[in-house]
Design a protein around this nucleic acid. Structure first.
Lengths: 190, 190, 190, 190
DNA sequence: AATGAATGAGGCTTCATTCAT
DNA sequence: CATGAATGAAGCCTCATTCAT
């Protein structure tokens, strides 16, 4: 039985995510996280080794949450297209529902703050995506291109457009979504 | 009186760019920049009002340099495809030649540290790209889609792959470049 | 958790008062106060919001201490003259006993560093003096003059002479005190 | 013939006085004085050894100017009362005409920033006041009290009330002036 | 004489972290 | 487990002054 208080752990994570996405990284200190989580600064160190550890754990937490949502309603029997389209729209729905978590994940994706280990581990969650990519290739539905190029024309454009959507530079409508998916699908299929 | 030393200005900019791209933003302080530029911390304030001003000016400097390189060898008479392909490869060449500046620009693109004014002004440099996009649409070569979607399937994939290339997650070869351009071109043309 | 240490709070106040009165205001920095109080600079910020807050709080603290001493042995039944004379000598005794606090109070009285709120609040402590002044006027003992003029010929001369006493320009003896009180009393009475 | 530019010297002094009285001492740096005087920081060092020297020289300059004004229209043949009354009103007129210089002088009177030498030298200018004080005593018009006590009941009350006038805590009218002079005169005469 | 560039020292404040209860 | 106190290091920036022209 653990005595540590899950509520506090959660409050700290939430506060950190919220602060980082709204105020930016430079303005997010341990004390501010503590204050926002209504907790003592020292308490953070009960749950996390240090700031780096906190950030890494949060990163993993967000990634895991994301990947769980991505597989909603997905079934092995689906065709490659159905499968990918479902994941695609799941991602869209997730981002719209959790804009803060989405932004957080994006902000950290290319940051030197997240160490190699965490990045690698975060890949684990995306195993199902890798599997479907391989199946698509072996079924000759998808072009024979590296995974990176596949991603660069499918989920990356979606991410970029969502980012712009949240920064209010561009409004990503449902109509756009259809167009964008069609373009992406054409791009990576034979 | 002493005269303002362009060497010093340049040294400060170079040091800042190098530090930010290699050590990350959080680990780049004014005094570290000063040390790297072999200059007193106070000297930075002779050339820049404060840290924010320094970052904005450097951002604009890099953007301007980038956009200048992008238009190398570009001519009005070119077809839309030739034009875009030239810019596309220019971007590739530029990134390979100036990996640090490229990374810097990417890191700052979505940062709250660059104020609105600088972002707006940086758009000015990309006017030629907007023009060719409009021409492509009016010539019915390009699909009738918003600029953002166009970019999301052309230059954004290239950026992503270059980023991965520099972070050594993926090697972007010349061969890949051809594939990638073809996919991009197919994606955004009728 | 550690408990807030009143000793530290006091040490910081004492150090600040001592430094300001002896070295002058311009030479009193937060780090010097910290060093004199044998405390880390950061510790000051546990007890005070910032430098301005520190100065205001100390100002109020000194003012309150002063006003408390002024009313020693004072009774409502006293005649106006007895009352004022008692306060008068109390002020003298206080200044002689706490030269540093006296000097501190004087140095700050007309300083822009003490914000309006603190000045107003400091007036609260002097309410008894205002009351006796009004009583003196209604009893026709005191001349019908504004408070400011009353003060300018009673406590202000005393302050000035005490200041000169401490700066060793002039020695204010007990004998002088009697003379000075007599002059002051004559000046403001009918 | 001196080549130094008196205009610049004057501009520096004026700027310093203005800044110190309006923005306070802590916010008055050499660079700010230079900027306000439309001069390079280095230029100040052509005219003054360092900051301390600048402040001392300005203090003397203001004191000298003040004492010159005080003797306006004063004649040896005047009675002690006429003489002192004239000086008294001269001081009032001077303060009203040059509020900034007046405030400056007051601000510095008890400051550790003005070294002993300057203070002593500033006394030189007030010799005529000492002379009339001695004459008043030998003529048995004035009480046989030390100079300091004499000043504490004559010019000091006036200074205090002027200070309050300028800080808008109290309006010192012509009517008040008559009352105040009468009180002062009564206080120090037999 | 006059100046803008240049700077080491130091200003105030916040940081990530540990201490002691 | 939980905490507010405590802190050395470091953050950004300005200062008084000197340099070099």
């Amino acid at each position: 039985m653990r005595v540590k208080d899950d509520k506090k752990h959660q409050a700290i994570c939430d506060a950190a995510i919220e602060l980082i996405t709204t105020k930016g990284f430079a303005d997010t200190s341990m004390s501010k996280i503590a204050k926002a989580a209504d907790v003592s600064p020292a308490t953070i160190y009960v749950y996390f080794e240090n700031k780096e550890d906190l950030l890494n754990k949060i990163y993993l937490y967000v990634k895991e949450q994301t990947s769980r949502e991505l597989l909603n309603g997905v079934k092995e029997e689906m065709s490659v297209k159905e499968y990918i389209k479902t994941v695609w729209y799941n991602f869209y729905k997730y981002a719209k529902k959790n804009p803060i978590n989405f932004s957080f994940g994006e902000q950290f994706a290319n940051s030197p703050l997240v160490d190699g280990i965490s990045k690698e581990e975060s890949l684990r969650y995306f195993q199902p995506m890798l599997d479907i990519f391989q199946r698509g290739k072996s079924e000759k539905v998808l072009k024979d291109i590296p995974l990176e190029i596949f991603a660069a024309f499918t989920f990356e454009p979606l991410k970029i457009l969502l980012k712009q959507h949240f920064s209010e530079d561009f409004k990503l409508t449902k109509k756009h979504m259809e167009t964008v998916f069609d373009i992406a699908w054409d791009a990576v299929t034979n």
